[in-house]
Simulated assay, not measured.
Amino acid sequence: MRQLLILRHAKSSWDDPKLADFDRPLGPRGLKTAPLMGRELSRRGWQPDLALVSPALRTRDTWRLVSRELPKHVPAEFAEELY
Protein backbone atom coordinates (compact mmCIF):
# COMPACT_ATOMS: atom_id res chain seq x y z
CA MET A 1 0.00 0.00 0.00
CA ARG A 2 1.28 3.46 -0.88
CA GLN A 3 1.56 6.11 1.81
CA LEU A 4 1.85 9.87 1.63
CA LEU A 5 4.09 11.45 4.25
CA ILE A 6 3.79 15.18 4.79
CA LEU A 7 6.59 16.86 6.66
CA ARG A 8 6.68 20.55 7.49
CA HIS A 9 9.97 22.43 7.56
CA ALA A 10 11.78 22.67 10.88
CA LYS A 11 11.64 25.84 12.95
CA SER A 12 12.96 28.76 10.94
CA SER A 13 14.80 31.83 12.11
CA TRP A 14 13.25 35.28 12.25
CA ASP A 15 16.47 36.95 13.41
CA ASP A 16 16.85 39.04 10.26
CA PRO A 17 13.57 40.83 9.46
CA LYS A 18 15.08 42.15 6.20
CA LEU A 19 15.34 38.65 4.71
CA ALA A 20 12.72 37.63 2.21
CA ASP A 21 10.52 34.78 3.44
CA PHE A 22 12.00 32.51 0.77
CA ASP A 23 15.51 33.05 2.14
CA ARG A 24 14.84 32.45 5.85
CA PRO A 25 17.23 29.84 7.26
CA LEU A 26 16.56 27.32 9.97
CA GLY A 27 16.90 28.55 13.52
CA PRO A 28 18.86 26.77 16.24
CA ARG A 29 15.83 24.71 17.26
CA GLY A 30 15.23 23.67 13.65
CA LEU A 31 18.86 22.65 13.17
CA LYS A 32 18.56 20.47 16.27
CA THR A 33 15.19 18.86 15.58
CA ALA A 34 15.34 18.16 11.83
CA PRO A 35 17.83 15.29 12.27
CA LEU A 36 15.66 13.94 15.10
CA MET A 37 12.73 13.76 12.67
CA GLY A 38 14.88 11.86 10.18
CA ARG A 39 15.82 9.36 12.88
CA GLU A 40 12.17 8.96 13.86
CA LEU A 41 11.14 8.33 10.25
CA SER A 42 13.90 5.74 10.02
CA ARG A 43 12.90 4.12 13.32
CA ARG A 44 9.35 3.71 12.07
CA GLY A 45 10.51 2.31 8.73
CA TRP A 46 9.00 5.22 6.82
CA GLN A 47 11.46 5.43 3.93
CA PRO A 48 10.10 7.68 1.16
CA ASP A 49 10.66 6.77 -2.48
CA LEU A 50 10.72 10.44 -3.48
CA ALA A 51 10.70 13.78 -1.67
CA LEU A 52 8.90 16.76 -3.16
CA VAL A 53 10.42 19.83 -1.53
CA SER A 54 9.79 23.55 -1.76
CA PRO A 55 12.86 25.42 -3.00
CA ALA A 56 12.75 27.81 -0.01
CA LEU A 57 15.98 27.72 2.00
CA ARG A 58 14.41 26.43 5.22
CA THR A 59 12.70 23.53 3.44
CA ARG A 60 15.82 22.55 1.49
CA ASP A 61 17.86 22.61 4.70
CA THR A 62 15.22 20.64 6.58
CA TRP A 63 15.22 17.94 3.92
CA ARG A 64 19.03 17.83 3.84
CA LEU A 65 19.17 17.22 7.61
CA VAL A 66 16.27 14.75 7.65
CA SER A 67 17.50 12.74 4.69
CA ARG A 68 20.98 12.26 6.18
CA GLU A 69 19.36 10.14 8.88
CA LEU A 70 17.53 7.80 6.51
CA PRO A 71 19.04 4.39 5.72
CA LYS A 72 18.92 4.86 1.94
CA HIS A 73 19.29 7.81 -0.41
CA VAL A 74 15.96 9.43 -1.31
CA PRO A 75 15.84 11.52 -4.48
CA ALA A 76 14.38 14.99 -4.05
CA GLU A 77 12.58 17.20 -6.54
CA PHE A 78 12.36 20.89 -5.75
CA ALA A 79 9.01 22.23 -6.93
CA GLU A 80 8.23 25.95 -7.04
CA GLU A 81 4.53 25.10 -6.73
CA LEU A 82 5.11 23.92 -3.16
CA TYR A 83 6.37 27.29 -1.95
Rank of each mutant, 00 (worst) to 15 (best):
M1P: 13
R2Y: 10
Q3G: 12
L5Q: 07
L5V: 15
I6M: 14
I6T: 05
I6D: 00
I6V: 15
L7M: 15
L7D: 11
H9R: 05
A10E: 11
A10M: 12
K11D: 14
K11E: 15
W14M: 07
D15G: 15
D15M: 09
D16M: 08
P17F: 10
K18W: 10
K18F: 12
D21W: 05
F22R: 13
L26N: 12
L26P: 10
L26K: 12
G27R: 04
P28L: 11
P28D: 14
R29V: 14
G30I: 11
G30H: 07
G30Q: 06
L31D: 07
K32C: 11
T33Y: 13
T33V: 15
P35Y: 08
L36Q: 15
L36S: 09
L36Y: 02
G38V: 10
G38Y: 09
R39C: 01
R39S: 11
R39A: 14
R39T: 09
E40A: 13
E40R: 12
E40F: 10
L41F: 03
S42T: 12
S42Y: 01
R43N: 12
R43C: 00
R43F: 05
R44E: 07
R44Q: 14
R44S: 03
G45Q: 12
W46S: 01
Q47N: 08
P48V: 01
L50V: 09
L50C: 05
L50K: 06
A51E: 07
A51M: 02
L52M: 03
L52D: 03
L52E: 01
V53F: 02
V53I: 13
S54K: 05
S54V: 08
S54T: 05
P55N: 01
P55T: 03
A56Y: 01
A56S: 12
L57Y: 00
T59A: 13
D61M: 14
T62S: 13
W63I: 05
L65H: 08
L65I: 00
V66G: 04
S67V: 05
R68G: 06
L70T: 06
L70Q: 04
L70S: 02
K72P: 00
H73W: 00
V74W: 00
V74D: 04
P75H: 08
E77N: 00
E77S: 11
F78Q: 06
F78W: 08
E80V: 11
E80Y: 01
E81V: 05
L82S: 07
L82P: 02
Y83I: 01
